[in-house]
Design a binder for these strands. Structure first.
Lengths: 123, 123
DNA sequence: CTGAATCCTGTATGATACTG
DNA sequence: CAGTATCATACAGGATTCAG
């Protein structure tokens, strides 16, 4: 489908994407897993500021949606690895333009904010 | 920048995008404005389920970030029109792949959820 | 190590009424 | 018409504790 062909009836899809990856951590998890399989503690360490609880919740949701797989290795000590599914990898690809946009425009946005704030609350 | 060149140090950017458009309504507003300038009431009517308050809050945030412009026409009755800035239009373009991904994979996700639920809560 | 369970709080969001 | 102000609420998210 060409980008320009998205139509009105896709509005609900917008909500669907946001419900999926619009939370605070999902895209970050997908980001790190795109570099290869990771273990729980690795993700916990790499994703700055995430709590155990939110990592668990986020991983469960993404597993349920078929974005990643959870594999338990029955060894001692216990071992669980998470890995993107093929669909998870396509999600990562689809999210990249937005991330690139962010990298490109963040400075511009900061400038816009500063100007707006100066304009609305002068002195 | 090539998609494959995004690196670890861009992690913070992921948060920046989500802070910008990861809320419930921003992308929907951008969506409708990509079809041309709209007035407050038009947006209110077209975006299903949004409250006056959230439309106001969302529009203000997007205006502050330089995504759209707010133009007050001094006529009677009052008249305010909202329009995407050039940066706003590039944001819309950057978000399109994710929306297309959603359209393509939503059925797949529903299936994954159903299977997951069946697997975890059997009967 | 990898979680699950519980409790607690802030923020986002919504409903309603009022105003230039 | 296009908001603002106020109040109410739900859910995300954090801290802590417990368990296989």
């Amino acid at each position: 489908m060409a980008a320009s062909e998205l139509r009105q009836e896709d509005a609900c899809r917008t909500r669907a994407v946001l419900d999926l990856v619009g939370d605070k951590w999902s895209l970050l998890v997908v980001r790190y897993l795109s570099q290869g399989p990771h273990r729980f503690t690795e993700l916990k360490r790499e994703i700055d500021g995430i709590s155990q609880r939110m990592l668990t919740v986020t991983l469960r949701a993404l597993e349920r949606d078929g974005i990643l797989t959870r594999t338990v290795h029955n060894v001692m000590p216990p071992h669980v690895s998470y890995e993107l599914t093929p669909m998870g990898r396509t999600l990562r690809e689809a999210a990249l333009p937005l991330l690139e946009w962010s990298v490109t425009n963040l400075a511009h946005i900061d400038a816009a904010r500063a100007e707006y704030d100066a304009r609305t609350s002068p002195a």
